[in-house]
Design a protein around this nucleic acid. Structure first.
Lengths: 184, 184, 184, 184
DNA sequence: CATGAATGAGTTTTCATTCAT
DNA sequence: AATGAATGAAAACTCATTCAT
């Protein structure tokens, strides 16, 4: 076997390094040349590891979905009561605020692609459903409507933070959700 | 004015026709040629009414922001109590679900532009703030934290609908928010 | 209407100027940039008139097929007897020796393409048949086998001239074919 | 020699396997990667046996020229009279119809290369002349003009078969050529 | 006002070739 | 000997923009 690196390992390494770029520039505005320059490889190398820009992007989405689920599971391990779990999740999101914002942008781009495509990658439709239901399971609140609602709130919060730099702090959210569960 | 329409009127007409295109394709993926073809004009005409692609897009954002605020105000005119206002707003959003989803995509593109630009158009930073505070004022709930939270929820809901076709219905949201305001 | 030139007229003009290039370099080795440089236009202009390299090439084949048939018809107008017609055709080919050699190369490339393509342009399959039968009709020798044979000979002669610079002169062919028709 | 095959033998083996590829795709359209994949070796191996794509192609042409001459000689061994020899040659070509068509394509590419090159490989100009005169000698018809003409016919026939799938059968040719030699 | 021809820098992608292993 | 990772120049094609008409 030539060279020292493991093919798949290096491929993942490249994917990780792409995350911020795709989030900040957007799929369509980010050129392969730009990616190559930023990752300090040649465009040829990019095409050695991925069959094209779309493949690269799809693999990125798959990777982060998988990783996020794993990380969230880890973060909520100690939390027992619904209150604790919600708090832990909010804390989890808050700690990675920038990351999740970026992730939201990537998902939006990704979805635009799936819709525009006449022949969307079926694997990735599932990826999303997996993600959503995975989070719901992790939360483990009894009321499924409530679980869904919490996701909605988190979703909105991340975007809100973006459009509206700084506010609202996570404490407000936490307080609101407690009010919801326990009454005022 | 037998055939020659008013310059500004025609400009707005063109902008309106661009909305879906920008939402579905995304700023970077949408070419001036495509716009021209779709609007049944020549590229030359586009450049006659707008100084470039960016100008066209910025004017589009400005236009819809302005119009949305006006429409929301109209829709909430009859509603007096906070409950009624929230309900009316949710109903307002629900009725234009697709529109608001598209709008979210346009905002994402718009924001990416503002961030990427070293020299962002100052008018449009304000546009956004105007929009946010405008909505809050229209809602007129006494608790500012609650108003903010409602915006967050609506924001999240639109995206949620997108990622998660069909569910959750607006009734769930309505119920949740009532619970919040009046206790369980 | 902008600019002075007629769109279709200019397109044909461009096609004519491409002929030698395709013949000499071959379809695959000839780049759009090279064509553009040689024709003193930009690549953009090329793509304004043709939807791509393949379209350009296909249109070229169609054009020359059509024109050759017309020219051959003209050249054989005065010839009445089979002998005269064969002689006129050979003379016709001989006068454009280089041209027909180039044409053969283009046809070979063209056919490689049609075979390689999973979805060959149906128009051009016909173009070829038209060409073949057109020539046979123009020749108007009574024996169809003989007409076919003459085509074969001309085909081979053109290539032979190429591989074997200079020889054999057209007189040899003429003599051989007369021998065929009239006996030794 | 348990596993290590002879270097030159393996080189020839590789060349043989390239023939169809070059014929069908054409020199310019066929990539080294594609060759490597098809021959189940790495590109590195290709470059171990050949100094580059051009060298590989040139060696291929040299090999088939040499082999064809040998095979033709074998095939005409028993034939004594001119009639028999012509018949045997036509039969020889007919049996390898596809092969000779492919060979024509390879020769076309080869020639284009030689012409395009400012510094053509001198060995291969000779190769061609050798081929031509070799065939003429093998045929051994007394009239050199006739020999040349037969080559012309065969040349044209191969192409004709290509452009004009199926017809004309070799019998027509055979009959025509007999008529030529013996009168009607 | 409106058109669409023209441009050339930019995009994604391919490819012959090199070279560390 | 053999591999396949890496490269960067060049390919086909796109696109915002300009401008003669």
């Amino acid at each position: 076997m030539p060279k020292i690196i493991d093919h798949d390992e290096y491929r993942e390494e490249l994917l990780h390094q792409c995350f911020d770029l795709f989030a900040e520039e957007g799929y369509a505005s980010l050129s392969m040349r730009r990616i190559a320059d930023e990752l300090d490889v040649s465009t040829g190398t990019l095409y050695h590891y991925f069959s094209g820009k779309e493949d690269l992007f799809n693999q990125l989405v798959e990777l982060i979905t998988c990783r996020d689920l794993f990380d969230a599971k880890e973060a909520l391990k100690g939390a027992k009561t619904p209150d604790e779990r919600i708090d832990a999740l909010l804390r989890f999101v808050e700690e990675r605020e920038t990351y999740f914002l970026n992730q939201s942008f990537i998902w939006m781009d990704y979805y635009r692609h799936q819709v525009a495509d006449r022949d969307p990658d079926p694997r990735l439709g599932e990826t999303l459903e997996q993600y959503r239901s995975g989070i719901a399971r992790i939360l483990d609140v009894r009321d499924p409507e409530l679980a869904e609602f919490i996701l909605t709130v988190i979703n909105g919060w991340v975007l809100q933070r973006y459009f509206n730099r700084g506010k609202p702090p996570v404490e407000t959210l936490s307080r609101m959700l407690r009010r919801l569960i326990h009454g005022r």
